[in-house]
Simulated scan of single mutants.
Amino acid sequence: MTRPYRSVLYIPAANQRAMEKAQTLPTDAIIFDLEDAVAPDAKIAARDGLAAALGNDYGQGAKIVRINGMGSEWGKGDALACAQAWSGKADAVLIPKVDSAADLDAVAALIPDLPLWAMMETPLGMLNAAEIAAHPRLLGMVMGTNDLAKELNSRFRADRLPMQAGLGLCLLAAKAYGKVIVDGVFNAFKDEEGLRAECEQGRDMGFDGKTLIHPAQLAIANQVFAPTEADVDLARRQIDAFEAATAEGKGVAVVDGKIVENLHVETARKTLDRAQAIAAMGQ
């Protein structure tokens, strides 16, 4: 079964209370953030305290550490801590502002045994999305829509029209190379209707899940990015109908008045696999 990434919650690595609370939250993954969420004068202390936090039980959720950029004064130290103090505790390392595959190479050289994730948040990163997604150590991509909006000097729109080119390029790259890709954050954490609409848009586009900034956003993301009962029922009926048709020497089946071909069955199997993986997490 493929691990789900419906909900990916940012937690400041300097906030011990938040990291403790996160042990009880129904999130598919946690990003322990050493970058944007930690003030410069707190970064070393946050790094030093993260090893103990990563040793705690977070259930079956993935533990991802976002380090500082390699061009900063903290980046190399963060990477070395990933390779040493956090070895066997973190599941992956997230690299900010990835512009090209060379940025991944620089971190991979320091961290030999952890999967890499890339923050996609710069115009150059959008243009180089394919070479980034093709990197052999890369497991997933995270859209950094706040930083991208800043770089584009775009205005906020509920339909995210200014984001569509960048989101689309990264989605195509991730799907082409079989990598996980999660959508950017929704900043108005008290706006449940707005969050649901953006989650639905992201799910329709093909994202695997959404990054979140507050635990109150978890329930909606987990619901939207999970197969519904109707999705699971349809998937099972499509598989059964196609297998019955195949046994009769036919190449297609019909379910609910619609043609079902092998490509639909492949999608149906992925839907069942996703539902089973979510059920296995008990969330």
Rank of each mutant, 00 (worst) to 15 (best):
L138M: 07
L148V: 09
V182S: 11
A92H: 11
A188M: 12
E192P: 06
L169D: 06
L195G: 11
L152T: 14
L161Y: 07
D113C: 02
L110M: 10
L148W: 09
D191I: 15
K179M: 03
D105I: 06
E193H: 11
G194S: 14
L104V: 00
L110R: 02
G144T: 15
G168Q: 08
A118N: 05
K150E: 15
K89H: 07
L169G: 07
V93W: 02
A133R: 10
L139P: 00
L104T: 01
D191C: 15
L94Q: 11
D105F: 07
E193T: 09
N146D: 08
M126P: 00
M143Y: 13
L167W: 11
A106C: 03
P115F: 14
G194T: 13
L172E: 06
D105P: 01
G168L: 08
P115I: 07
K179F: 00
N128W: 13
D113I: 01
D99R: 13
L172T: 10
M126I: 15
A165I: 10
P162Q: 11
K97P: 00
L171A: 03
D113E: 08
A102V: 07
N146M: 14
V93D: 05
V107M: 05
A188K: 08
L139S: 15
P162E: 13
N146Q: 14
R155P: 02
L124Y: 06
A165N: 13
V93R: 07
V180F: 12
V107W: 03
E121K: 10
V180A: 04
I181Q: 04
D191E: 11
G140N: 05
A108M: 01
V98M: 06
I111Q: 03
P123L: 15
P112Y: 14
G144P: 07
L169R: 14
L116Y: 03
W117M: 15
L161N: 04
K175S: 03
F156L: 04
A108W: 02
P136V: 12
S100G: 06
L148S: 05
L138H: 01
K175L: 02
G194H: 09
A102L: 09
F189H: 13
L167N: 11
D159Y: 12
A90C: 04
L110I: 10
P136M: 12
V180S: 04
G166Q: 10
L127S: 12
M163C: 09
A133W: 09
A173G: 09
D113L: 06
V185T: 03
A173P: 02
D147C: 15
M163W: 12
L172W: 08
L148H: 04
N128D: 10
